[in-house]
Structure formats: C-alpha cells, structure tokens
Amino acid sequence: MTAAAVPIPDHLRRASGRERRAVVDRSMRIVTLACTVIAIIPLVALLAFVTINGVAALNVDLITKPPRALGIGGGAVTAITGSIQMVALATLIAVPVGLSAGVYVSELAGHRTAGVIRFAADVLVGIPSILVGVFVFTFLVLPFKQYNAFAGSVALAVIMVPVIMRTTEEILKLVPGDLREASLALGIRRWRTVLSVAVRVGWPGILTGIMLAVARAAGETAPLIMTALGSRLLNIGDFGRPMDALPLFIYQNARQPYPALNEQAWGAAFLLLLAVLVINILVRARSLRGTSR
C-alpha cells in the first residue's frame, strides 16, 4: 500500500497564472460577465430615471384633468381613458380572431396548412408596427377623411392577433394528446373536445398570451399616429373621432420645448411603464413557476 501521495507532477499542476490558455479562459469569463452587466445597465438606468422623474411629475391633475386646450397645464386623463378604450376594443377584436386561428392551427389544420398560417403569423409579428398603422390608414381613415379611434383599435388588434395566435398554439401543443383522445373516445364531438378539454386545460397559458399582447398594444405609439391621431379633448366612447392615448401623449409632450410639458411626459411614461411592467412581471413570473413544475 502506498503510504502517502507523491508530490504533484508538474504536468498536472495548475498553470502558473501566466499560461495563455488559462489567462484566456479567466479573461473570457470576466468579459462575458462585463457584457451582461452592460446589457442590464440601460434597463436599470431607464427604470431609475422614469421612476424618479415620473414620480416627481405625478399629481392629481395628471390623472383627473384633460390637457389645457390652449397653453400649458392640465393632465393626461384624455390619454389614460383613450388608451383603456382603444386597447379594450382591440382586445375584443383580437382575442376571438387570435384564439380561433390558434385553435385551428394546432388542433384542426393539416400539417401544410398549419405551416403556411404559422409562417404568415411569424411574418406579421416581424412587420414594423408603423406599417400596420399605414395599412389601416388606407382603408379606415383615408376613405372617410377622418382620423378615428376605431382605426386605432383595429391597428392595435392587428398587432395583437399573431401574438395571441402563436401563444394559443404553443400552449395547446402542451396539452396532452390522451386527454383529447379520451374525450373523443367518449363520443364527444370534436368542437366540444377542443373547446371544453384542450382550450379549458390550456386556458391559463392562453390568458398569459392575451395579457402579454395587451401589454404590447398598450405601449404602441407608431400605429396610432396615422389612425387615432391623438386629441386634447376628452373622448369617451366616440370611436368615430380622434382619441388620445398614453404613448401618443408622451410622444407629443416630449417634443415640446416647455419643461412643464416634458414633465407631464415623464409622469405619463411612469404610469405606462408601471402598467406594462406589472402585467409582464405578473404574467411571466406565473408562467415561470408553471414551467418549473
């Protein structure tokens, strides 16, 4: 039996710290870490500035008063109510459409058809949102020579549909096939099987997709510029006329040369960011926990 271990031979020893391979290995760990920090800095800086400037600009007027028709002052209540109305209508349009398309692609369509529709949806997701605005402008604004909130809602819906469709599809794929087979074997019709088994089981996930689509629509500005236009007047329920939205309000006020208006932009940005991030964090954190199980 060997008594004690012999000294470590040189060829197994850790490098002296100057050997090129070891140096490269250690440096790259630091470099990749540094890049991660660099990637996160903008988020931290942005959150910090929006929070600091935004909270400072918050006041009761901002959420209760419309902007002054002339001059400076007032609040963003037109924008807040406008965003809620347009996003709500867009959701009403987009959910049935996105859901149906998602169900069709994952449950009913042939392999080929599904591929074509999925491809179209992926391309739609990649289309710059401003072009969706231009597209809707050509048939819902131009013929009537009137910017209107309905066109804004449709534009937002066009942006939401492929997102809802793709998440619905992905979620339904995860629903175990034997659940469906069990239902079909019981003699339950296909439509009932799909709706009461697949969609019901996948509903929490589908809801996640809808919420993310809502968050995305709420933050969209570009497609509203040439549809809903924005407005300084309070518009409740008249979708035939221009309507303001929080993103439009921020965009307009950020471009003005008056610090008071810039401040309002920060305040509105804080509200918008808060809403969007809360939805995202709640929804994503839930789905994170869901997948880890």
Partner: peptide, 27 residues
C-alpha cells in the same frame, strides 16, 4: 441565469416611446 434572463426579457417589453423619452433627455 434565470432571473437575469427574465430581466433582459423585460427590457423588450418596455414601450418604445418610453425608451425614446429616456433617449432624448438622458441617454
């Protein structure tokens, strides 16, 4: 890795106009 990836994904969720506002006045 999981929380860091989550944070970076959040960056993608921030509305463009908010990033623009920050870009004009801060960045």
């Amino acid at each position: 890795a999981v929380p860091l990836t989550f944070i970076i994904e959040l960056l993608a969720a921030i509305p463009s106009v908010v990033i623009g506002l920050w870009g004009v006045f801060v960045l």
